[in-house]
Structure formats: structure tokens, C-alpha cells
């Protein structure tokens, strides 16, 4: 499934744009970059993506796990967590929400590509 639409939720602007460029090189479309949970929910409504890449630590009141829960409650969109935090507590918490993958930053383009394809494939064949 090429040209899938992806929303990037990441509060470091530079890292978010680097990920966006990688996604474009991998032939995906990026609907938007959101830097907070609230922003992400608005972007999902504006232009519903096929998949969300979600940083766990975010600006604002909601963290990535809460934001993913809120998105999944409204729409059937797979969420892949991105995080540099190798915090077991957060990893366990993330596992409790239905997630479609987990990438530990820094990740390689190849890993990103595989994680996205697997998540989209899983959604299609459920």
C-alpha cells in the first residue's frame, strides 16, 4: 500500500521534519505534523490519515498514549509509537492501549518502513 497517508505526532520540530522527509522518500504522504495531543486530534478530524506515528512524550496536557487512546476511540486508525524513552513503565502502559508497533528512537528508515507496512497490513487483514 503505497502513498498511504500518515500523521506525524512529535513535539521536536526538527526531528518531526526529518521523519517527514524520510516518509516522503519512502513514498508515503504526510497529512500533517502535530506537536501536541490536542493538535493531533484536530488534524485527524481535518484529514483522516491511514496511520499515526506517535511520540510518547508530547507538549501539552495529553501524552502520546492518552492521545492514541482518544484517536482509537473515535476512528479505526493504527498508531505506531515512537520514543527515545526506554522507560519500562511507559512501554507497559503503551502496550495496554491497542498499538500496532513500537519504534525506539533513533530508528532507521528501513525499520520505519517495515513497521508502517506491517501495521497497515494488520489493519487490512483483521
Amino acid at each position: 500500500m503505497s502513498r498511504a497517508k500518515i500523521l506525524v505526532v512529535e513535539d521536536e520540530w526538527i526531528i518531526a521534519n526529518d521523519i517527514k522527509d524520510s516518509l516522503i522518500e519512502l513514498d508515503y504522504r504526510v497529512t500533517a505534523i502535530a506537536s501536541s495531543g490536542e493538535d493531533a486530534l484536530a488534524r485527524v478530524e481535518e484529514d483522516p490519515p491511514d496511520l499515526v506515528l506517535m511520540d510518547i512524550v508530547l507538549k501539552g496536557a495529553m501524552n502520546g498514549i492518552e492521545t492514541a487512546r482518544a484517536i482509537r476511540a473515535r476512528r479505526d486508525i493504527p498508531v505506531i509509537y515512537l520514543t527515545a524513552y526506554d522507560n519500562q513503565f511507559l512501554v507497559d502502559q503503551a502496550k495496554q492501549t491497542e498499538n500496532f508497533g513500537y519504534l525506539l528512537k533513533p530508528f532507521k528508515d528501513r525499520e520505519l518502513h517495515i513497521a508502517i507496512d506491517m501495521a497497515l497490513h494488520r489493519k487490512q487483514h483483521r
Binding site: E12, N17, D18
Partner: peptide, 14 residues
């Protein structure tokens, strides 16, 4: 430190 180095790395790639 790791996070900042990642930002520098992303900056260079951009």
C-alpha cells in the same frame, strides 16, 4: 544528551 545529539543528527540530514 542523546536527544540533543539526535536533533543535531536530524538537522544535518535535513
Amino acid at each position: 544528551v542523546k536527544n540533543n545529539m539526535q536533533i543535531v543528527s536530524s538537522l544535518l540530514r535535513l
